[in-house]
Design a protein around this nucleic acid. Sequence first.
DNA 1: CTAACATATGAACATTTGTTCATATGTTTA
DNA 2: TAAACATATGAACAAATGTTCATATGTTAG
Lengths: 119, 119
Amino acid sequence: MEEQMPYCETNHQHPELIEHLKAITPDEEILYDLAELYKVFGDSTRIRILYLLFESEMCVCDIAQILNVSQSAISHQLRVLKQAKLVKYRRDGKSIIYSLADEHVRTIINQGMEHLSEE
Amino acid sequence: MEEQMPYCETNHQHPELIEHLKAITPDEEILYDLAELYKVFGDSTRIRILYLLFESEMCVCDIAQILNVSQSAISHQLRVLKQAKLVKYRRDGKSIIYSLADEHVRTIINQGMEHLSEE
DNA sequence: CTAACATATGAACATTTGTTCATATGTTTA
DNA sequence: TAAACATATGAACAAATGTTCATATGTTAG
């Protein structure tokens, strides 16, 4: 976001490549949303929640107890997951039952795990 | 990380499920590393860099100019990508040429884009 | 060897993020 | 309707993050 130094002397850029890059790179707005999505995965408490929901739908209280995190903290994190449309919920009496919104979540987590294991 | 309230009255948890969940949830350390990996994707400047590298290896100077971000900022971000083993580099004279480390990067980004587009 | 170039890095600062605490909202039971 | 329960939410605060600025490191040309 700054003034730039002059192009490097050994100019590696071909004008046609630059045009191509601009053509294939998604718009600002989309890149921003994409980054926001990954931020959601960037917290181990949220990943833990997702791992639980991989196996079974679950109420807030259960999640909090199993993960040994306060009800408030879990509720705040569920909100983040909900906003990113990674989880959905329904009411059942006094409880709110959360579950996975779709299967992309699993794929993204699995790819991440693969990357980690290949180092 | 707190003392918990007692289990919810309508105890949804079956002891056997809890055992199962503990069995399949990765260890603390792995979950932490996984979250760290996603944090790397959680910045639009870094995603931009990756999009450029999808098409071509590139020196720091070129990346900075194309994205219109200062050399220092790009260099700091490349360090993050490097530490996560998402990019690799080689020296070519005065320049350092960066490129993608592996193809997981592409898969993870693509899955993220798919999730966004399905809302 | 010196100057110019390309990149890296440390410190500082503003911004964002995650948790806690207190409390509000909504549901069920007595 | 009142009390107990389950969840959500706002404010506050500490910790983490991204950029800038200044400068260091490493390479090449003269």
